[in-house]
Design a protein around this nucleic acid. Structure first.
Lengths: 107, 107
DNA sequence: TGCAATGTTTCCATTATTAGCAACAAGAGG
DNA sequence: CCTCTTGTTGCTAATAATGGAAACATTGCA
């Protein structure tokens, strides 16, 4: 309604970012990248999915600016760009759990 | 693969939280709730969507523990529970934009 | 060059998300 | 009781997201 183009863009950018985080596999990938760089094949095995699927998830995380990649021979190493995101994720799970506790307490 | 049940649950909880934030309309709703409480009908008009759609988005945000509601006569007022989420959202958009800038700089 | 290893892209089938309308539920007030 | 207002839920059609297989591209190395 009374929404400027700039506001609209901002809402879309923000949701785009969160969309990248809105999948358990992508969270798990970020969690693995917390300690060191991993190549796609390693991550695929670790998470238990096809390499093509892993590649697509990683691509989405990269588009959102959360990770970055670097070619090393035949393999591509991905690394975490914004480690703060994971603390953010932990904060998130804390919030959900607290909410559930609260609900159970009332009900 | 080497994933415990506890880890799996955590990844799902975290992604569940982010999924609630992964839609421009829900971000906009949170943005409106930043200043004061709003009822569903107000928000629906403000955002320019049907009241049923607004109700469903709000329900999802509530399930994630981001907002809470209270009945007042025939209407339901929603209010923000975790204001920190919005700073988080701003941080997110900053990250994406910075990433794009960086990419444009290189390309 | 030939071949193996690694990633990405394309395609398809399946599932999930979303919007909007209509039906329904709960209160408020005459 | 009747009706108006407000929200929620059920339903359907349209769209988006996902996984996996296969094709393709790139690199390293014998």
């Amino acid at each position: 309604m009374s929404m400027t183009e700039e506001e609209k863009t901002r809402y879309e950018l923000q949701s785009y970012m969160f969309k990248a985080l809105a999948h358990p596999v992508r969270i798990q990938l970020l969690d693995r990248l917390k300690t060191r760089s991993w190549c796609v094949c390693e991550l695929a095995v670790e998470v238990g999915i096809d390499k093509s699927v892993a590649s697509k998830h990683l691509s989405q995380l990269k588009e959102a600016g959360l990770i970055d990649d670097e070619k090393r021979g035949t393999q591509v190493e991905y690394r975490l760009v914004a480690p703060c995101v994971l603390e953010l994720a932990n904060c998130a799970v804390g919030m959900v759990l607290e909410n559930r506790k609260r609900k159970l307490g009332l009900a």
